[in-house]
Design a protein around this nucleic acid. Sequence first.
DNA 1: CTTTTTTGTCACAGAATTGTAACCATTCGT
DNA 2: ACGAATGGTTACAATTCTGTGACAAAAAAG
Lengths: 226, 226
Amino acid sequence: MTVQTILLVEDEKDIRELLALTCKREGFAVLETENGAKALTLAREKKPDAIVLDLMLPGLDGLSVCKALQRDPDTAAIPVIMLTARGEEIDRIVGFEVGASDYVVKPFSTREVMLRIKSVLKRTSLVPEQTALASGAIRLDALRHVVFVGDEEVLLTVTEFRLLEDLLRHAGQVRSREQVLDAVWGYSFEGYARTVDTHIRRLRAKLGPGADVIETVRGIGYRIKG
Amino acid sequence: MTVQTILLVEDEKDIRELLALTCKREGFAVLETENGAKALTLAREKKPDAIVLDLMLPGLDGLSVCKALQRDPDTAAIPVIMLTARGEEIDRIVGFEVGASDYVVKPFSTREVMLRIKSVLKRTSLVPEQTALASGAIRLDALRHVVFVGDEEVLLTVTEFRLLEDLLRHAGQVRSREQVLDAVWGYSFEGYARTVDTHIRRLRAKLGPGADVIETVRGIGYRIKG
DNA sequence: CTTTTTTGTCACAGAATTGTAACCATTCGT
DNA sequence: ACGAATGGTTACAATTCTGTGACAAAAAAG
């Protein structure tokens, strides 16, 4: 996945830098401005994935910026998170009149803003992950976190579950041990590739009669039939 | 248990699926169709609690569907939320002539639509039963703020109540501690995820024989059986 | 203000999970 | 057929996770 960009529009330097730092720490790219007019230009030119917008800005204020963003078809789809003081007309802000996707009330914690950003990004990304996966006699439901072989529920540990999910999401494709390690264990894992083998074995044991959907591709890795 | 059902009428598959996912995540049941005529049949047969209706549909368009729903006494009471493009004659849509309960302008965020649905349901549902949730021997009534295990009333604290309510609203789905914290404690809570465990424990203690509906999903979080 | 209730955090023990290494079994090229 | 890779199996120590009880701070009730 590509890096997502956040546009921060806030005139108070301290707050802006704090937010910028937090966003960067979470792996986002950051654009900053203290000015409403510049925010509009930046939004149009750079198409950020989300905008964090202070309501009180010198010159063109946050409300006007937000409305302008909504009116422009180029930027209308970008979610906006408003930073507001308590008691401001939140219904109007989030309603259609202004059109913000969400808001955070000052004083806020960076954690709170981060959560809003992530939540908003999850909501607006048009590719909802498929939650139900299946192959052969095996069914996996990521939302409910259950796996069935035929009619029988199978209890998997987290790692086993994630491993099976990764294989199913790439059903038909070979997955090398390295790919699986990156996807299931994360990039920071520094262990042996053979770890995958052990978990494949445990998976097969638990899947019982359904185990034959997992094929070994010698010299490469594993693959789900299909 | 009374799960509320939403009928989604939208021909663009991506949008429909995104909305469906959002509704399901919020604990609603979902019916989907891309076709105006089928929408009428479905509405009559299944009596959904709300209908989200795209204005632009191939064949029978949204306006006609909405008018037809209004004329039929079986469906006239079902609130309709229209998805419209900007600049369409919103006054007519929500007014007497067409009779939609509310509308959302494209492009919209799922959050926006969700808020409309909930607001419309709140306005139209006069039946307190619709706030009733249940699983196994446990019944929870959000409106009256009471919980029963079998015939025995159980007194819960606010936090315990909200926790149980959140789990019940996502019955069958795993809820991670993070998700629960965000939903029950709010985004601004900065505490420890293990706090959830303690409250789960207190809940289980109070639920007594009904406690077995709360399952621990090791490595992930908790889930209500079902 | 005092008492009671509720709530969040912590420490700890038991249990489940996991990564690794060592050892077989199988496959493949020669 | 043989040796070298490669994958399967097993056992085990280390780690991680959850349930529990205790406790102090915070909130609510009196």
